[in-house]
Amino acid sequence: MASYALRRLGTVLVILAVMSLLVFLATHALPASTAAMILGQYSTPETLAALEHKLGLDLPLWLQYWNWLRAMLHGDMGQSLVMERPVAPMLWDAFGRSAILALCAMAIVATVGVAMGVVAGVWRGRWPDHAVSIFAYLGIAVPEFYWGLVLILVFCSTFHLLPSSGIGNLSDGVGSYVSYLILPVITLTLTLLAHVSRLTRSSMAEQLDSMYVKVARARGLPEHVVIVRHALPNAMVPTITVLAQDFGFLIGGIVAIETVFAYPGLGRLLIFALQRQDLPLMQAAILTLTAVFCLANLGADLLYGIANPRIRHGGAVE
């Protein structure tokens, strides 16, 4: 197990290194140059050259990458060109707000989604199965932001139950704070619920068809024992990987959802940076999101290792 964990960690480090290089190179291919952006309309060839020299932009590319990476690793993410403020604190605030959204959504998906899948798998071909599969079709039929729009139309414009945009303040009480979270979180979960419940259903169905379940039933074990103690642990193993994969979709969803609900999180910050071509902000935001995704995958791999006795316990006994 330790060797498995170390290997996964090694892989993640390699991927992160490749990622940082990709992000660095991609942002350098952008038409806008940092120095030109800082100087704006006051730029002359002389001042431009002077500033490029000061910022180290005239160094060879690999050296620039090395300096940039070293600064990043020390937590120095540079200065936002548009906002003219350090990136790190801005990023952290936005990251915290997005993390709340993501964690709430993930918690719901991991519990409700898996439960829906299990129910559908156990009652295959009966009405709970059909209900889940209709829900799944609706969930994946349109992008998340569209459901966000529909929810706003229903809950905010028509019934005026919930705020449609922005973020609550904890000092106004927990209820108010939560009321701002409800719609974005529900919107985020819809698509993922559809995905997770469908895959859990099929993996549950596969386990229930397996030989060891037949054997467990032949031993006269009650059906709930067969489902909960025998089939479920095995059905959960592929679901873990699916959840990690969905975390990537969640990040994509967050970018769109934060725009719909005007929620000041990392996604909106990224869109802002991309639209304004704010290089340091863009690099930091992309790298942070990527790192989070990699870590989520690493976590899933480790969980997978724990859930899977083949990895947890190696060789033969005899």
């Binding site: 397996s210 030989m211 060891y212 037949k214 054997v215 467990a216 032949a218 103690r229 025998h230 642990p233 095995n234 193993v237 859930a307 899977n308 006795p309 083949r310």
Partner: peptide, 12 residues
Amino acid sequence: FQDPFTALNPAR
């Protein structure tokens, strides 16, 4: 049953 390779629950 016939196939001992799949008749035991792999997780327990």
